[in-house]
Computed example of a mutant assay.
Amino acid sequence: MAKTHCAPLPVDEELDAEELAVLLKALAHPARIRLLQHLAHHGTCYFGNLSDVVELAPSTTSQHVKVLKDAGLVLGSAEEQRTCYCVNPDRLAVLKRLVEAL
């Protein structure tokens, strides 16, 4: 059996493990990852359209959106009796920095 030598990766900032865990837990379902990706690529989306993205019942989609909102990854605003969602770019940047700090 060959020995492998693993060198430590350079670390630019200290890892906030608790914060990273909160964000990763919010993304711990394929539907939530698809929702976040869809919103990141399309800018904004109304709730009804999000159910089509993940091919789930509106009530199930709503639960997934709530998890993303609670983690701060998604923002929602009411517009003419409909809710419009978008990615929170600041929170997504935090997620990226924390993952890079691993």
Score class of each variant (00 low, 15 high):
T44K: 12
A2K: 12
V94I: 12
R32Q: 04
H5V: 12
V11C: 13
S59F: 07
V65L: 15
H42I: 00
H5F: 09
Y46G: 02
T60C: 05
G48D: 04
T44M: 05
N88S: 05
Q81S: 11
L95Q: 08
E19H: 04
G72S: 04
E13P: 11
L24G: 00
L39H: 11
F47K: 15
V53Y: 05
V94K: 01
A78E: 10
K66Q: 15
A28D: 14
H41Q: 14
K66T: 09
D12M: 10
L9V: 10
V94R: 11
A28K: 06
R32D: 07
P10F: 04
P89I: 06
Q37H: 09
D52N: 14
A28Q: 12
K69F: 09
T83N: 07
Y46H: 07
P30D: 06
R34Y: 06
Q37W: 08
D70T: 14
E80C: 08
K25T: 08
E18V: 11
A93F: 03
V87D: 03
R32V: 01
V54D: 05
P8R: 03
C6E: 15
K25M: 12
Q37I: 05
H29V: 02
R34F: 06
G48N: 11
T60Y: 14
K25F: 02
V11P: 01
L27R: 00
L27G: 00
K66I: 09
D52R: 15
V94P: 07
R91F: 00
D52E: 14
Q63V: 13
A26L: 04
A17M: 07
L50K: 09
C45Y: 03
V11F: 04
P10R: 09
L35P: 13
